[in-house]
Simulated assay, not measured.
Amino acid sequence: MTYTLYGAAGSGSIPVEAALTLIGAPYEVIEAVTWEGDAERDKVAPVNPMRQIPALITPGGETITESAAILIWLAEQHPEAALAPEPGDPQRAQFLRWMTFIPASIYSMYWVRDVPSRLGGSDPAAQAGIEALTLERITDCWRIMDSQIEPGRWLLGDEMTVLDLYVAVLSRWRPGRARFAEAAPGLAAVVKRVDALPELQAFWAERFPFED
């Protein structure tokens, strides 16, 4: 009963890999560094026509794409791990709110800024403008999220969820943790706890080495 995950070190598959690690479910990773060219993207094409990672193949053979959907589904499939508020829990609405806010408002910006020619064409000035504006947008979104959350030990209170894993990973991406901490000090305190989880130290070292 092994999960198969198409992913890559340092990528959007990392919060999924972290969740599987905490759950204790067996999984294997098919490494597909999709930003390195068509050959890598073609590895994912049989399971995701968008040729993007992550893509999870469940033990039953079902394919799930989109990191937020995968994380929510895994938490529901493994309630013993207590990685999400259950339906009916007072925290469930905010959990779903922020689990969808991140891919809609933040994660989506990287599709633009990582390859600015997608929208800016071949004009270097246009590409530079896109890179700068998307980083400002990402920072603003972290700031807005921080203003709307009053964390406890974890983002939603006393219990860690896959939302904490999601934010911890994406906050390592550009514009980087220093600017993230300036924009979202409340969130920053929580992600440091995620970084320090003893259960994930070997995992971080292997899949997403990081120095604060």
Rank of each mutant, 00 (worst) to 15 (best):
Y27I: 05
I30G: 12
E136P: 07
Y27M: 03
L200Y: 05
Q127S: 07
E131W: 00
L170P: 12
R97C: 14
I23W: 08
A93V: 14
L200C: 10
T4N: 10
N48G: 10
A39P: 12
P85F: 03
L156M: 10
G37R: 13
P198Y: 13
T21A: 12
D123K: 04
L71T: 01
E182A: 14
P209I: 04
E40Y: 03
P185M: 02
L165P: 05
A39F: 02
D212R: 11
L170M: 14
S171E: 13
R193M: 07
L133G: 02
I30Y: 01
S171V: 07
D158P: 04
L155E: 04
P85N: 11
F180A: 00
V33Q: 15
S117Y: 01
T34E: 12
A82R: 08
R92E: 13
T65E: 01
G12L: 05
A39M: 09
I53Q: 13
M160R: 15
S67R: 00
R118I: 03
E80K: 08
G152C: 12
W204K: 02
F101S: 05
V191P: 13
G60K: 10
E40F: 08
L5C: 07
G121A: 07
E40I: 03
P90E: 08
P103I: 00
L156H: 07
W204P: 05
R97D: 15
E28N: 01
T134D: 08
R113E: 00
A183G: 11
M160A: 14
A178P: 12
D114M: 00
Q94M: 01
V190H: 07
T161Q: 10
L165A: 11
E182Q: 15
I57E: 05
R193G: 08
P85Q: 11
F101R: 12
Q52P: 05
P85G: 06
A84D: 02
W142A: 02
L156Y: 07
T34A: 11
A125N: 01
R193Q: 11
M109L: 08
V47H: 00
Q77A: 04
I53M: 02
P185V: 09
T161Y: 03
D42K: 12
F203L: 06
G152N: 07
I14N: 06
L96I: 15
S105N: 15
A181E: 15
R137G: 15
I138S: 02
P103A: 01
E36L: 10
F208I: 09
E182V: 14
G24P: 08
P49L: 06
T4F: 05
I106A: 00
S11T: 08
L135I: 01
F180Y: 09
W173C: 09
K192Y: 04
A125Q: 15
F210Y: 08
L200D: 04
L22P: 01
A125R: 14
P85D: 10
V33S: 01
S122N: 15
D195H: 14
S117E: 09
P85W: 00
W173N: 05
G157C: 10
L74N: 04
W142I: 06
I57W: 01
P185H: 02
L74P: 02
